[in-house]
Design a binder for these strands. Structure first.
Lengths: 228, 228
DNA sequence: AAAGGACTTTGACATCAGTCAAAGGGATGT
DNA sequence: ACATCCCTTTGACTGATGTCAAAGTCCTTT
């Protein structure tokens, strides 16, 4: 229990709450562990609550009838998922699988609802979380509909390097998963990485990618320039 | 004022509030009118509040550098938009334009925030609204990434006919706008409509479309079947 | 009724990206 | 060290969809 309460402090969804709320949260939160690849829920399952990632990584995704996968979000420690079904009462809108060995906290819907009713700060944090995800989804829609794959990849590389401020970025997911994140397939991703290498925009060796021409990537990822 | 208060009762975001809250809402809400095509806000504009549509229709969309447009949502009477920037404090994530002559209520951010802090019912309604939009966006991402245009169109036609329960549906948007909603262009939409006609799945005359083979549309829109 | 303009349709074409197949490379476990 | 498996890369090909251009249709305005 003390362990659970410790986690709560570092989770943005639970920032700035009253002491009593933390105790209540750690009382209703249930810790669950999943092996890599293990399924947490499936699209359409009844949403009996939502989750917060403690450790590992959880993949939220959709699958087509032909088996192609589109990742909606990769949730790392401190991030929540499955909130949507708490507030709409329908089934989960997507699948969730542990992309790495993962530990999560599960908060049952009813108990959490009554908690959120009592604490405006918790409600506002939740609205901020939902809004953030909505903004991210709007960006993904924009990318899928209005950018070509090279543009999406360039933007993603800039995003990764922006976090570190570094010229060398490490892909934190396999290339197959990166393809699913960018709305394409591994073969296409591989070809475009090769092309960016040839053009001297990047220098990639395995999961390590050195950015050689940031401006060039910006033209492709942000300004819609096409590859020659 | 009485007029404004009258509107509030029928808006799902404001359902089930205390009488005092309605009065407060009608006090802080500002009515604004827009001509057809008039811009309400642009992506990146500072979000000083959010909107509720009273009459008309508001288009929320993204535009690519080449000018292609992807509609995120068409907001009709009773629907809200621009909420995201209330809770994240960043600029609006997309553009908003009146698709028809429209009247909206504007709720300034700060005043609304304090209101939501006082009334858990309003907070829960807002979370439900955000969740609903999130679910819709997840569906759009799925469609854009995992379905081809015929599938998206078939699904949309089924959606329209489901509302009426009727075999004949009327497109409530121009075909150009429908294309932007489905993530394609008018030429492609036109060709696919022609193909569905040829195959005997529908019979379209202008904006009127009669569904001749519902099962066939379901195979295309829901099961990923390809057109011959 | 005529004229103008916007929306829609059709055709020819280019191209991006997915499919299928096979080879290459790297990690893991025996 | 070796074998196996999985991920990744490359090649040849196909197909869906966007681009460009022109013709057609509908609606509004004069």
């Amino acid at each position: 229990m003390a362990d659970v309460a410790g986690h709560l402090a570092g989770i943005s969804l639970f920032r700035g709450l009253l002491r009593a709320q933390y105790e209540e949260l750690s009382r209703i939160g249930v810790k669950r562990s999943f092996r890599k690849g293990e399924r947490i829920f499936s699209e359409g399952d009844e949403g009996t609550g939502f989750y917060v990632v403690c450790g590992g990584r959880v993949k939220i995704f959709k699958v087509s009838t032909e088996g192609k996968e589109q990742i909606l979000h990769l949730c790392g420690p401190g991030e929540s998922f499955g909130e949507v079904s708490v507030f709409t009462g329908q089934g989960f809108p997507a699948d969730a699988v542990a992309a790495l060995p993962s530990t999560v906290l599960f908060f049952p819907r009813v108990a959490f609802s009554s908690l959120i009713r009592q604490d405006p700060a918790l409600a506002l944090n939740m609205m901020a979380q939902l809004s953030k995800r909505l903004r991210q989804f709007a960006g993904l829609i924009e990318d899928l509909s209005l950018k070509e794959v090279p543009g999406r990849l360039a933007k993603y590389l800039l995003y990764l390097s922006g976090r570190d401020g570094d010229e060398t970025v490490d892909l934190d997911v396999s290339k197959g998963q990166l393809a699913a994140l960018l709305g394409t397939i591994p073969e296409t991703l591989s070809r475009i990485l090769a092309k960016l290498n040839r053009l001297g925009l990047i220098c990639s060796r395995g999961a390590q990618i050195r950015i050689l021409d940031r401006r060039g990537l910006e033209e492709i990822g942000l300004e819609g320039k096409r590859l020659p």
